[in-house]
């Protein structure tokens, strides 16, 4: 995959499409494409991951193993969504497991390289931090709603 091809795709994906072209060019130079078969584990919780992914095609389930209850899927991610962002932060330990639901293509970034690039290129750093903050805020919002269990059977008429 050439950086030009990656750039074109970034301009379509929700996570990146509003970023400045120069930022996207820098990102494209750091990205490499990875493919996963259906049912393949991408990483498991507690792994210390080195890679961060931006999903291009397919669907990935995030799950947590609950002792005594088995594995619970907590969220699925699709095209334009990032996966494994915890690798960007200290410890880099994954907080959930990721397994493909359908064959999946993604862009992968080495987390250490990406951090370095974010430090050197402040435009890139700022754009990525805003985008990641938006993702985290969205997932926090969704988790709150999920916790409310709004579709639980009601005893009210």
């Amino acid at each position: 995959m050439s950086p030009e091809t990656a750039l074109e795709t970034f301009q379509e994906l929700a996570f990146t499409r509003d970023m400045d072209p120069a930022v996207l060019e820098h990102l494209a130079a750091l990205a490499f494409e990875v493919n996963f078969a259906e049912g393949q584990w991408i990483f498991r919780e507690t792994d210390v991951g080195e890679l961060v992914y931006l999903i291009k095609e397919g669907k990935v389930a995030l799950s947590i193993s609950v002792p005594g209850q088995g594995r619970k899927t907590i969220l699925t991610l699709g095209p334009g969504q990032i996966l494994g962002w915890s690798s960007l932060f200290p410890t880099g330990r994954k907080t959930a497991s990721a397994r493909t639901v359908t064959p999946t293509k993604a862009f992968a970034f080495n987390a250490a390289q990406l951090r370095e690039a974010m430090d050197e290129n402040r435009d890139l750093g700022c754009a990525l931090l805003w985008a990641i903050a938006d993702v985290i805020a969205g997932r926090l919002k969704a988790t709150r709603l999920q916790l409310l269990d709004i579709f639980a059977p009601s005893e009210m008429s």
Partner: peptide, 25 residues
Amino acid sequence: QTVDRADESWKGHVGVVPMMFYHLR
């Protein structure tokens, strides 16, 4: 389609329905 909770046999989305906006342009 999405559900709030599912086991691994479910091949659809998991997550609350407002999150489905993320899949649309």
